[in-house]
Amino acid sequence: MIADIERLQEKYLNKDFDVKNFLIEAETTVRFAWLSGETHPKFIDTDHPDFQAPPTFVGSLAGSRILPSDFPRFGVGMDAGKSVECFAPVRPGDEIIGKSHLHEIYAKTGRSGRMIFIVTRIEFYDKKENHLANSDSRIVIAERQHGN
């Protein structure tokens, strides 16, 4: 059963399947900051010299699709986690580019059968191709059993 996971890895890992532009609006990032309890002026004061989006804001930016269009359907996916890496601030007013690829595919077998984990990574760049951040979404899919 490992072979099918290896085939998926070979076919899909590290290949961009979506590119999307995002206009970062100050009103949205400030609201995000307020709602999540960020009180530092650089996140909530648009006049602050280092005004920027809160670091986890990129986690709210979704690509046009979560998985490649031809990716096989194993079952219903659940949100198993989020990870964000920050390399440079995301500045409100800027347009940034998000490029999506599958970063990890692996399986774990438990009492209720096999669970497939898929990590979709969106890499965010500014217009000068500076790498600003990565946002990983971890989806877990309980594989359908035969007869279900």
Binding site: P55, T56, D79, A80, G81, K82, S83, V84, E85, C86, D136, R138
Partner: peptide
């Protein structure tokens, strides 16, 4: 400065 954060739900 937050460099990374990984959360498991």
């Amino acid at each position: 400065t937050l460099l990374s954060i990984d959360t498991i739900f």
